[in-house]
Design a protein around this nucleic acid. Structure first.
Length: 423
RNA sequence: GGAGAAAUGGCAGAGUGGUCGAAUGCGGCAGUCUUGAAAACUGUUGAGGGUCACACCUCCGGGGGUUCGAAUCCCUCUUUCUCCGCCA
């Protein structure tokens, strides 16, 4: 959420910047500024009424104390009127404030200056590419065929138990999955991230804090009986650790990592693009989250990108990095880099990580602040990234590491799997 | 799930109807002293809104109520603790 003060001061810049997202923000912003002015004048009136009422109350107290009950009773009459007035004002104020809040939630984050304009993923900018695309073995299979051939993932079984999009990992498939989780967590820990285990269900306030609510309500599973949401990403519980916190500058940098399952309703499309592990309702992910000083956040973002590059190099997967264009950029993000691995057998790129700087957008919703050197409260910057999303990494490994005889396990994972190949 | 107790500033902990945004201690920050540090002493130290700056307003777990006036009384919800029950 953008700060009102920023909207007041930089209306034109915001409008220009949001054009990159193909949004004409002018009517919305004007509406907001009008409401804001309205709200403030109501607030001022209410404050004055309350001030007067407070003053009278004090006088009444004094009069009673000095035994002048009659005079006190005269004043009491007056306060009745003020009370009515303040009640009316207060109601008007609440409704304005609510209206204003609802509009503020509708403005997405301002894209970073480096974000290219564009309307769809076509316009994302490839900024880096590395790794060899392996030569295909003859009769190379996509991962869903391999999964069946080696009996390591059972999609039909998941359908029976839960529904489409809830695969069952079996035997070495399950073990490989667990190996990846451990490996990612170890890499993150080595890089200075503290491992956390967090709730997989969150309350409404947390959903609002990181921006899943109210904009993307339908994407989360909602547990109605208890009014909780299944997390779509560990970003939600981990970032909300800092909701309503005021940090000290010396607390920075804050680096957390967490493994969680992720749940997404995504009533998405059908076909090859969502086959197998490509898109699921439940999947595993290891996430990294950082809370940073505003001056250091882009440096932190670069650090995260380097870190993930490093992991993909070790896994020897061919990958590229995209700078998301305005049209593809997430609602809450200022700058996002997507990592995609090349899946040989599917002959396409698979998104396996998304690394973003939210600047103060989430922090404003979270009320996540720090004390600057002058002792003033300032909003911190939040960032997060996947390191990594499991299913597509698994898909890429299965497809790219397949041989005539089976599937090789990447060198770095062998200490974790305890086996060298799946056959 | 049943019975009882509690929820106050970064922490601990007073405050049971008026001048209380809240005693006191610890912690934090600044200063004095010191070559430096510690100790001691002095001052300062919650958040948000509002203002050019003041004034002023709101907030003592959340919501509602009583009252001229609520941290303090009432209702309700949530959470925590103790006891009982159930349970991986």
């Amino acid at each position: 959420m953008l700060q009102l003060q920023v909207i007041r001061d930089h209306k034109e810049q915001i409008i220009t910047a949001l054009k990159k997202r193909n949004i004409d923000a002018l009517p919305l912003l004007e509406n907001i500024l009008d409401l804001d002015e309205n709200r403030r004048s109501l607030q001022a009136k209410l404050d004055n009424t309350l001030a007067e009422s407070n003053k009278l109350s004090k006088e009444i107290g004094m009069l009673f104390k000095s035994g002048k009950a009659q005079e006190a009773n005269v004043l009491k009459e007056k306060t009745g009127v003020l009370k009515e007035e303040s009640k009316t004002l207060n109601e008007a104020l609440s409704s304005k404030a609510e209206e204003l809040q609802a509009l503020l939630y509708q403005i997405p984050n301002i894209p970073h200056e480096s974000v290219p304009a564009g309307s769809s993923e076509e316009d994302n900018e490839e900024i880096f590419k590395e790794g060899e695309v392996p030569a295909l073995v003859e009769n190379a299979l996509p991962h869903w065929e391999l999964a069946k051939k080696y009996d390591i993932i059972d999609f039909e079984l998941g359908v029976k138990i839960a529904g489409a999009g809830f695969p069952v990992y079996k035997g070495k498939g399950a073990r490989l999955q667990r190996a990846l989780i451990s490996y990612f967590l170890d890499k993150n820990t080595e890089a200075g991230y503290t491992e956390m285990q967090v709730p997989h269900l969150v309350n409404e306030a947390s959903g609002y804090g990181t921006g899943q609510l109210p904009d993307k309500e339908g994407q989360m599973y909602h547990v109605g009986a208890d009014d909780l949401y299944l997390i779509p990403t560990a970003e939600v519980p981990v970032t909300n650790i800092f909701r309503d916190e005021i940090l000290n500058e010396k607390d920075f940098p804050i680096r957390y990592t967490a493994y969680t399952p992720c749940f997404r309703r995504e009533a998405g499309s059908y076909g090859a693009h969502v086959r197998g592990l490509n898109r699921l309702h439940q999947f595993d992910k290891v996430e990294i989250v950082r809370v940073e000083h505003p001056e250091k956040s882009y440096q932190a973002l670069d650090g995260m990108v380097e870190h993930i590059k490093n992991i993909l190099r070790e896994l020897k997967l061919p990958y590229r990095i995209l700078r998301l264009c305005g049209g593809d950029l997430g609602f809450t993000s200022a700058l996002t880099f997507d990592f995609e691995v090349f899946s040989t057998a599917q002959d396409r790129w698979l998104e396996i990580s998304s690394v973003s700087n939210f600047e103060t957008y989430q922090a404003n919703r979270l009320k996540l602040r720090y004390k600057d050197e002058n002792g003033k409260s300032q909003l911190a910057h939040t960032l997060n990234g996947s390191s990594l999303a499991l299913p597509r990494v698994l898909a890429a490994i299965l497809e790219n590491y397949q041989t005539e005889d089976g599937i090789e396990i990447p060198e770095v994972l062998r200490p974790y799997t305890g086996f060298d190949s799946i056959s």
